[in-house]
Design a protein around this nucleic acid. Structure first.
Lengths: 109, 109
DNA sequence: TGAGTATTTGGCAAAATTACCAAATATTGG
DNA sequence: CCAATATTTGGTAATTTTGCCAAATACTCA
């Protein structure tokens, strides 16, 4: 693996890393339907204001969301819509795994 | 966000977390075309035997790859093929970002 | 201007990740 | 069985991530 290749993989890994957190994933899911302001998230997530803000900052840094300040609120929107497809992909795999586990259990009965 | 929801997001985040490392991403890319044995990776990645083995273990744990021991070699194969589509998604976003950066630079000239 | 609301930032401690080395395990072939 | 090869596992130090608190910043409205 040469140097150019290495940094290319690092760039992609950085996007994945930004998505790889339950709260951030949930945020992305929320943003899939429409933009939201930070205050809306804080009410629904069991975490500090500052924690939510930092999660959003991670997503923004990775190029997954963009922010837009209007009044004293900051609205975030998804600018990497294809994450949605990927979630479907992961979901189907997780469902398969769950089904496989169930089947394995039933064989032991 | 209720408890069931929370653990569902955690499960998906775990898959993403497993993918979120340059070396692991590279491994997944290699496995996209065909199965490989650990020894093949070690020669190409600039890392210790044990490091590669642990990366593979992370991917396996996440349900992304499966292993198959034949002789004294262990072969790994991709069992979550849709990761490929997602990489395309990420790549297109990264290309857009690069293009945007270039455009921004040119505006300053 | 000043109080109130919304959000970000800095600091810090706890937890998780990473990568190396050394040692253990498994398998093949002589 | 023994030596050689392939891989995994345990231990550990360095680095990164996470999440809270407190403080700073930004904006609105009276």
């Amino acid at each position: 693996m040469d140097k150019a290749n290495k940094s290319s993989y690092a760039a992609r890994a950085a996007v994945l890393k930004a998505l790889a957190h339950p709260t951030r994933l949930w945020i992305v899911d929320q943003l899939a339907s429409s933009e939201r302001c930070v205050c809306e998230f804080v009410n629904e997530v069991d975490a500090d204001f500052s924690t939510v803000s930092k999660h959003l900052s991670v997503l923004k840094q990775a190029g997954i969301v963009a922010d837009d300040k209007r009044g004293n609120k900051v609205f975030y929107k998804l600018i990497m819509p294809c994450t949605r497809q990927f979630m479907n992909c992961i979901n189907s795999v997780l469902r398969n795994e769950a089904a496989a586990r169930t089947a394995a259990l039933e064989r032991t009965v």
